[in-house]
């Protein structure tokens, strides 16, 4: 595939590093954006910082891993690879979505009218339980997806020395499709309308006949399912999973949601890309040790300049 049209001019070495970093950043950013969307949606309807969301992503990655094992393991697959990938995503999406709904029903619904701090602490508790349950059930060691063994199209596309893996293309395409699907869902459907109504004023929405419980459950389902799919794709793209990947990924995604403006869907997408790019550029140009610190510093700076995020609306204070 060497020498695609747009890159027919020979790239310099710096240019190659730059483009490679850009590609990595976009892929990571898409994953963060998918997780951030769930954070943002849940915050929108419940005004709850769901700290357990990152762990749902981790659970999704594990479901994907076991799907591979189910079909004979990485080296001896018994079904075609595209089918496997679709199966992994569907199962992880449905499974993690159901888990999200269960968590909402069990832990958050009884606390709808409790003080603001109560659901926050509950979310920390859920995060503890998810992380340690996976540790208990599957052990603490790092597992390998072995994606190169079964992804024949993991062969990279070379464009003047820049490697773009097919799995990266899958990640970007699936993420973009899901984001636009979500946008259409929120803007065009009845569910989207009721979700926006609940987000803007839950009591008023209830009085106007919106089924608030069902809307919130549905929001949790969609948000969690996206995190689950993101987990599968991160397993394919980065290869390694363990029970602790959720916390840091959740934190980064959360940064993305906040930078973009928490509660705003396009904000979460752009925030995710910004965080992904920021991380990949700082690790390839400054130091990989400091990349997390730089991301956190970016967040703190954003919050101080514009507390509601880049795309967020400042909250109205009712007196």
């Amino acid at each position: 595939m060497g020498g695609g049209g747009a890159f027919s001019v020979a790239c310099t070495a710096q240019m190659q590093i730059f483009i490679q970093t850009l590609v990595t950043g976009i892929v990571t950013g898409c994953l963060y954006a998918l997780i951030a969307l769930g954070y943002s949606m849940v915050y929108g309807v419940l005004k709850l910082l769901n700290f357990a969301h990152g762990d749902l992503y981790m659970v999704g990655a594990f479901i994907g891993y076991f799907a591979i094992q189910w079909f004979g393991g990485a080296t001896a697959l018994i079904i075609p690879v595209p089918l496997l990938i679709i199966f992994m995503m569907v199962v992880a999406g449905l499974g993690v979505g159901a888990l999200g709904v269960a968590i909402e029903r069990f832990a958050y619904r009884p606390l709808r009218n409790a003080p603001r701090i109560a659901p926050l602490i509950t979310a920390l508790g859920i995060s503890f339980i998810l992380e340690d349950s996976v540790l208990l059930l599957f052990g603490g060691f790092t597992r390998n997806y072995n994606a190169p063994a079964f992804l024949p199209f993991r062969q990279s596309i070379h464009i003047d020395g820049v490697n773009i893996w097919s799995v990266q293309i899958i990640v970007v395409v699936v993420s973009v499709v899901m984001m636009f699907g979500l946008r259409e869902l929120v803007n065009r459907t009845l569910f989207g309308k009721s979700m926006r109504a609940v987000a803007s004023d839950r009591e008023a929405a209830e009085m106007l006949g919106v089924n608030v419980d069902r809307t919130i459950a549905m929001t949790f389902f969609i948000g969690s399912a996206m995190a689950g799919v993101a987990g599968v794709m991160s397993g394919l793209a980065f290869g390694q999973i363990s029970n602790i990947i959720g916390f840091l990924a959740g934190l980064k995604a959360f940064t993305a949601a906040v930078v973009g403006g928490i509660g705003s869907i396009p904000g979460a997408m752009i925030g995710g890309l910004v965080i992904g790019l920021c991380e990949s550029f700082s690790s390839s140009y400054i130091s990989s040790q400091y990349s997390d610190l730089i991301v956190f510093a970016l967040l703190i700076a954003t919050m101080l300049v514009r507390p509601q995020g880049v795309f967020g609306q400042p909250p109205l204070q009712k007196v």
Binding site: A107, P110, L111, A114, P115, I117, A118, P119, I121, T122, L124, G125, I126, S127, F128, I129, E131, D132, S133, L135, L136
Partner: peptide
């Protein structure tokens, strides 16, 4: 069999139960 992990799970459970039963 895994007291260390169990302890963490119990702490999480205590947080959730406390918040559900007596948020104050």
């Amino acid at each position: 069999l895994d007291p260390g992990i169990t302890a963490q799970i119990m702490i999480g459970a205590i947080l959730i139960v406390t918040m559900a039963a007596r948020p104050e």
